[in-house]
Design a binder for these strands. Structure first.
Length: 273
DNA sequence: ATGACTCGCAACGCGAGA
């Protein structure tokens, strides 16, 4: 099963790009962020036409998340639990063919001397609580999305200039690691130790052409999902196309059943002796 | 260098993004 995440920066402006990528990359599940439309106005039919169904959670003008899949989607939650007053559409969670997935659009948090940074950190604490709650059931879980956190300086093209930014602040990184420390795995880093791999490039200042990027889009896997992790990568191609989003998809492949290597056959041989 | 932001919105400039 191929699971991807992509901040599309408006699903309506990006519709041809997203449909093209679905046809080319053929993920089984695509987690979308920044759809920027109310739930009712999501372009559902265009996805149905190419064999996908959609569960969306949106609001007017800003934010908005969705789950796209070629398999039935059973929505578990719209909106991140833990604050009934939070009306921002940044979280949708669903059960898809034996896998629990969430599409996450974590608040940016800038400027750091404003209420927005506190909102970001409070939101991350709520995400931590939800992530912890989910672990108890020992499920295959993929928490994917735009985390708006660069986990380390190696995920930033110019760490010095980003030092005080909400995406790189120690508080943001610690809140991110708090979720990792529960036992979630950053799927990309399982296969890629190299630095300077990015999922976002600003529209301004020729950032894309100079490879001035950030790695802020992540796929976090529960232990049971990590057991099945086959591969993970960032697909840079969509960022180079006309009318591109400023983010590009990150995807991983999850085996249908865990692969415990040769252990079962070794155990079988030992038993037969 | 020969190129340099892009969305939605009761919009014709603004706020937000990261």
């Amino acid at each position: 099963m191929k699971v991807a995440t992509w901040n599309v920066n408006s699903i309506k402006a990006r519709l041809p790009n997203v449909l093209d990528w679905l046809r080319e990359a053929a993920p089984d599940i695509l987690l979308l962020q920044e759809t920027k439309t109310i739930t009712e106005d999501f372009p559902y039919l265009e996805f149905v036409d190419i064999g996908y169904t959609v569960a969306a959670h949106g609001q007017k003008s800003y934010n908005g998340v969705a789950i796209v899949s070629n398999r039935p989607i059973e929505v578990v939650a719209t909106g991140l639990p833990g604050d009934d007053d939070d009306e921002q559409a940044r979280y949708i969670e669903a059960w898809v063919d034996g896998v629990r997935v969430a599409s996450i659009y974590l608040p940016n948090g800038n400027p750091v001397d404003s209420e927005k940074f506190y909102y970001k950190l409070a939101w991350m604490e709520r995400l931590f609580l939800r992530a912890r709650e989910l672990l108890a059931n020992e499920e295959v879980i993929v928490l994917g999305g735009d985390y708006n956190v660069c986990p380390t300086d190696g995920d930033v093209y110019d760490p010095d200039s980003w030092q005080g930014d909400a995406l790189c602040r120690p508080e943001s990184r610690a809140a991110y690691r708090k979720i990792i420390h529960l036992g979630y795995t950053d799927a990309f880093r399982v296969f890629h130790g190299e630095l300077g791999r990015y999922s976002y490039w600003d529209y301004q200042g020729g950032a894309w052409h100079q490879d001035n990027g950030l790695r802020i889009d992540h796929l976090l896997l529960s232990p049971q999902a990590a057991d099945r992790l086959e591969t993970c990568d960032i697909d840079k191609k969509p960022r180079g196309k006309p009318k591109a989003s400023d983010h590009t998809p990150v995807w991983c492949s999850i085996l249908e059943k865990p692969d415990f290597g040769g252990w079962t056959s070794v155990a079988g041989n030992a038993k037969s002796k």
